[in-house]
Each structure stands twice: as structure tokens, then as C-alpha cells.
Design a protein around this nucleic acid. Structure first.
Lengths: 136, 136
DNA sequence: ATAGCACCTTCGACTCACTCGAAGTCAAGT
DNA sequence: ACTTGACTTCGAGTGAGTCGAAGGTGCTAT
């Protein structure tokens, strides 16, 4: 099964621009047809799926590019790749913790406005209204 | 209590550049001394704390700017601000969910490499190795 | 008084990861 | 022959900083 830029971008929920960007940056290997058009296969789909996850994890294009190169190199790079993943998992955990804090901050803000609107608290147009108490 | 750019940036853990950027963009109101230097007070500190949270929530500079303007306008804008916060809380929740998924994805990747390194799984240099199974 | 220093100012350029549009190429369909 | 549509590259724009240069101001030490 092969795909054009348009097809794979639709399949993966990316813009065509982004797919071309990834191939140009060397993240996403692709072959070309006789008219120099990019052609992708199911392997590309897998790659793209991985890239999407890694990007969402906040890993930079450049880091993904070099990780991708390590994968190509074969099993000699296994332990490097392992360390790469371990360190990024740590970062992901940090962001998870932060996301939790932010939700509770927003909860607090929303409740604050509800209190005012329902007359349980005085009107408070102070910009810092509802900010988190001590920490952060 | 008043602060210079340097002082407030140190206090808040931002670069001086960023603080100036925020004042220039109209997010962070500030007075000027007779030499045109920015001066901040404790109110500014509160504002900055709020701005930091909102930014971490992924709210754009422009949205924060208009939220800040709404706050200045007074209690007539209370319900607009309430809706603003509610919708951003929703986004924060979505990101929390995503952060959870990403951590579990990274866990999976890390385990995958451990399995290979410890001989519990075959070497697999396939780029898509360890990607999430069905969903995402 | 002049030099050095720390701090401030604005301005314009750079970064990253896209995002967009323009201009051109190519094969197929009417 | 012409249009359509998908492709190509290239260059510019965006957002949110990030950085550095060039210059202004006031304090202290010599």
C-alpha cells in the first residue's frame, strides 16, 4: 500500500505542508516516484505515528531526527535509544504533574467567579483574583 | 514596594526580556519613572503570577491581553471572564488527559527497550517499534 | 572631572515548528 | 487544447519568546 502526500496527510490528520516539512527535515524518510513526487508506505504511517507521539511529548524536530537516524543504524544504538526514551519519559511525567496543577488552578479560578456571580464573595476586579495561593 | 525590571524578573523567574515583552504587548501594565524606566509594584507581581499560570495553560498572549483588559473594565465584564475561564479549564482538562496518554506511551516505549536489552524480546530496529497499539 | 560600572532603554534579527501562498510542473480527463 | 488537480520548491509570515547591539543615565572611585 502506498500513499501520496495528500493521502497520508489526510490519514494522519496532518496538513500536507507538515508532512512535506517532516520529510524535508529528515524525520520521515520517503521515496520519490519518477516525477519526483513523495511516496509513502505503511512503514511511513508507523513512523508518522511515532513522530506524532514524540512531538506531543515536546521532543524537538532535531531530536526526533537524530533518534530516527539512530533507529536506522540498527541494534548498536539500542542503549542510546533506551536512554533517550527514559529521559523523555521523565519529562513527560513532569509535564503530567504540571498539567494537574494547571487544572486545579483553573478550577480555582472558575469557582472564584462562581462565588462572585452568585453573591457568595465580593466583586473583585483585582487582576490577581483567583490566582493560586502560596506556591507557584 | 516597587521593583525594576531586573528585580521583578528575578523574583518571578523570568528573563528581563520576557518581562519587557509582556509590558510592550500590553499584558502587564507598568508605570515609568522620569527616565522612562519601567517600575513595578506588588500588584504587578500578582499580575505576573496570573499571567504565568495562564500562559502555562496555553492561553495566547493576545487572549491574556484581552482578559487583562476585561479585568480592568470592572465588574460589568464578570460573566465574560467567567466564560473565558470555563472554556480554558476545559482545554486544561483535555491537555491533562493527553499528558496521561503520553506518559503511558513513553512507559510503553521504555519497557519495550528494556525487553529487548534484557533479551525478553527480539531486537527490533523498526522505526515504529514501541508505538502505541491501536488508538492514537 | 572623568572613567568605569550596572542598570536601563529601544530596535531589529534570530529561533522553532509550523503555516501559508505563489509560481511552476505534470498527467489525466473533457 | 484546455482545465483540473495534485504535486513540486521557495520564500515569507506567525507566535512567543530569546538575544545582542547601541545608546542613555546615574553612582562611585580615582
Amino acid at each position: 500500500m502506498t500513499y501520496t502526500v495528500k493521502e497520508i496527510s489526510e490519514k494522519m490528520g496532518l496538513t500536507e505542508h507538515t508532512v512535506r516539512f517532516y520529510t524535508d527535515k529528515g524525520l520521515l524518510p520517503c521515496r520519490r516516484d519518477k516525477n519526483n513526487r513523495r511516496i509513502f508506505d505503511d512503514e511511513s504511517v508507523n513512523w508518522l505515528r511515532t513522530i506524532q507521539c514524540l512531538r506531543k511529548c515536546g521532543i524537538s524536530i532535531e531530536d526526533i531526527r537524530s533518534y530516527s537516524a539512530l533507529c536506522m543504524e540498527g541494534s548498536s544504538t539500542l542503549s542510546v535509544r533506551y536512554e533517550f526514551m527514559k529521559s523523555h519519559r521523565k519529562l513527560a511525567l513532569k509535564r503530567l504533574e504540571e498539567a494537574r496543577e494547571l487544572v486545579s488552578y483553573m478550577d480555582h479560578k472558575v469557582r472564584h467567579y462562581e462565588d462572585i456571580l452568585e453573591g457568595r464573595a465580593p466583586d473583585d476586579t483585582n487582576p490577581s483574583a483567583g490566582r493560586p495561593r502560596q506556591k507557584e
